[in-house]
């Protein structure tokens, strides 16, 4: 019974982390755009980079919510 519980928790945590797919794609798109921008206008590289990092960070927040849910499923429930 306990083994089943642990197994289900593990599955639940894994499913929760599926939500990291979105931010992963998002960060990919974001960096794609930023690199293109830098390629077109290398002088603006600094500005683009700063804003890119900010964008990544905000996108990453979604993945972090997934992580929180996964951690709660694993350790709190």
């Amino acid at each position: 019974m306990e083994g089943l519980e642990i197994g289900l928790k593990a599955i639940g945590a894994g499913l929760a982390m599926l939500g990291a797919i979105g931010p992963g794609l998002g960060i990919g798109f974001l960096v794609n755009g930023a690199l293109q921008a830098i390629g077109r206008n290398p002088d603006a590289g600094g500005q683009v980079q700063t804003n890119m990092i900010l964008g990544i960070v905000f996108t990453e927040a979604v993945a972090i919510y997934c992580l929180v849910v996964a951690l709660i499923v694993l350790f709190v429930l």
Binding site: A61, I64, Y65, L67
Partner: peptide, 16 residues
């Protein structure tokens, strides 16, 4: 949400 995302971003990255 800012509290949660700030806290868990740092924690998640370092812990992971």
């Amino acid at each position: 949400a800012k509290i949660i995302s700030l806290a868990f971003r740092l924690f998640g990255n370092i812990f992971a």
